[in-house]
Nucleic acid binder design. Structure first.
Lengths: 366, 366
DNA sequence: ACGAGATATGAATCTACTA
DNA sequence: GTAGTAGATTCATATCTCG
């Protein structure tokens, strides 16, 4: 399915593009994607994957030189695909990259050097990692993800309330405990072997997409593999674009995603924040007669009092101004949310004025 | 105390050197140190003030030593001190560096570029991190440590069995859950303010030194601060060399370390024992009358409660099983260390049941 | 003395909109 | 661009205060 968005060139939405991810990305229109999720290769032996600049062959390479040249080649590759990825992002777009200690430090430094602004590094703590059989190191029980905005000023998407709800009402932390991909979720080929060596669990993508995209957003994955990103995106009502070089992976991914059903509207609804709700000027409460000019408001802690004026400002002892300004001044605080700070009296009881705002908002949504 | 080791130039063991760490390191003899632990400035780049929702101001890390003009300046600094550090390491030496997403990717890339060989990246998962007050990102709940050998062929020290014993007989993972440094452990100045903005917990250094040094090893810390590395090294019978620019930090560290007592031979042996600590079934606490059947246990976070049954299992709301199973079920976690999760009440105070196990173990070793 | 409740604080790249 | 202002936002733990 290819969809045309207002005025912009066509985006190959919900398809898997074949070929090299850098070329494929450069063929897409710039500033057209909301989120990029990338699980790049990190095996330094796969030089063919790395677009290594054609170094002259030196026979007697010692280990250190060889190591340096492979890091250097990996850096070239990383910077090339990150540059192409950044071009595709909308100004308020963001990127997630996952990796291990073999490559993540190089990826992180490259992100910073290219102007991406790191928002968090997130640790995927595997609940069932492979043990270190030889007992020579610690069990490698986690992978690292970097979440970064396109630049410092990007107004990135962050569904704080939805993630908080996912975490039983407590703010989501930067360490996520999730099992690795096994059992029925792990895709197999005809001979029963795993179809892809590093298939990521859907739970990981679920949390990423819930937290940093909205329904209808476009999510691009330049190292699509067997399509976990696409499967979760489709389920969650996001559009995806996948890029994958290997035909076998593309085939597995196509079949997999075809089986996925988009959740219905109700299931897709997530907890929203107060910030997303329409603004209500305090003056409207006066205009509508919900509060009378001259009426007294009382502070939450009952220590202060102020009078409502006809223009929607307050006047207290030696202070006048907005509900927020007067609250802050009386408390000697740098700021104050007047809506939750002030109460009015109703039948002798103190009621937060925020209740009146909620009434107005309820009427607006009808 | 300055000690001369066989034939090598004198090392200023168990002292704190003043001045810039690069100069100080270059003045020391090469290949003389077993382990380096470094907690360099993080280059936080903080801007305005931050207030908690209750309007109190967050005491930010705004010290002069954490200000760099650019990533490039920070990289120059990092590469310079890493180069000096690497020169000091014995061929089989290793280094630990701790950082956050602000700097750790640059540190990791520099380590790799200079020929260090990364062994693990270790995540310190803070059990009590500072929340994200504005709800704009994930709680920054961890820091990252990189453990690397001097080079690929280094026969680094790794006390596999000791760490396994510390972890209740299970292979130690790359993610460590430890609380931040607070309470009595947190050093204060005369006016009662924290003596250092970023003091690390001793538990962190304890695990590092147990795992990657032996008794009598030399541990160098080029960013000594208030001397956590020195205090733990002394306690564990390792020699330390500290380097610190700020005189006030040096003074605090001197006093602190003077108060530390080296563990006696026996205690040292236990801590680094080759075999795991003897296993103590929870039921033994009941059999011995240390806990009564019917007695209530309380979770560490005080959110859950369960009753002890005569057979050494617990029963909570709709769950029964071992202390570990019930803890995991109540927390919705894949696993749970019941020994550290559950508390009993003693004289009204909540005491971890692990204390009872320690009592039994102490008796067993007599 | 003891318990309940209040207060304090931690390596933090922590807003969004209008004029 | 900048300045001003509305208004949204916290978890675990240690210590202190007061009855």
């Amino acid at each position: 399915m290819t969809t045309k968005k207002k005025g912009a060139p066509a985006l190959p939405l919900n398809t898997i593009l074949a070929g090299d991810c850098i070329e494929a990305m450069n063929a897409l229109p710039e500033a057209s994607v909301d989120l990029i999720f990338a699980d790049p290769p990190y095996n330094l032996q796969l030089r063919g994957d790395l677009h290594r600049p054609d170094n002259s062959r030196v026979d007697a390479v010692d280990d250190e030189w060889d190591r340096f040249s492979s890091f250097s080649a990996y850096d070239d590759f990383t910077r090339a695909w990150l540059k192409a990825a950044r071009r595709l992002l909308k100004p308020n777009g963001a990127i997630w990259v996952i990796g291990s200690y073999h490559n993540i430090f190089r990826v992180g430094a490259a992100l910073q050097d290219q102007g991406f602004w790191i928002l968090n590094d997130v640790v995927w703590r595997k609940s069932n990692p492979m043990p270190n059989f030889r007992g020579k190191r610690l069990t490698n029980a986690h992978e690292t993800m970097i979440w970064a905005g396109k630049d410092e000023s990007s107004k990135y998407t962050f569904n704080y309330e939805a993630l908080k709800a996912l975490n039983e009402g407590i703010q989501m932390r930067s360490d996520w405990v999730l099992p690795i991909c096994t059992g029925h979720e792990r895709l197999k080929d005809e001979s029963g072997d795993k179809a892809h060596p590093t298939q990521k669990p859907e739970s990981l993508l679920h949390r990423i997409l819930i937290g940093s995209t909205n329904v209808g957003d476009v999510v691009l994955d330049p190292f699509f593999g067997t399509g976990t990103t696409g499967a979760v995106a489709k389920m969650l009502g996001r559009d995806f674009i996948g890029i994958e070089r290997e035909e076998t992976y593309r085939e597995v991914a196509e079949k997999r995603i075809a089986m996925v059903r988009r959740l219905d509207k109700e299931a897709l609804q997530t907890t929203t924040s107060k910030r997303a709700e329409p603004r209500v000027p305090f003056g409207q409460l006066v205009e509508r007669g919900m509060l009378r000019p001259g009426e007294s408001l009382y502070s939450m802690n009952n220590r202060h009092k102020a009078k409502v004026r006809a223009d929607g400002t307050l006047i207290g002892d030696d202070v006048k101004g907005s509900i927020h300004q007067v609250g802050a001044a009386l408390e000697g605080a740098p700021s104050c949310n007047g809506w939750t700070y002030w109460c009015f009296k109703k039948d002798g009881k103190r009621v937060p004025i925020d209740l009146l705002r909620q009434q107005i908002r309820a009427e607006m949504s009808n």
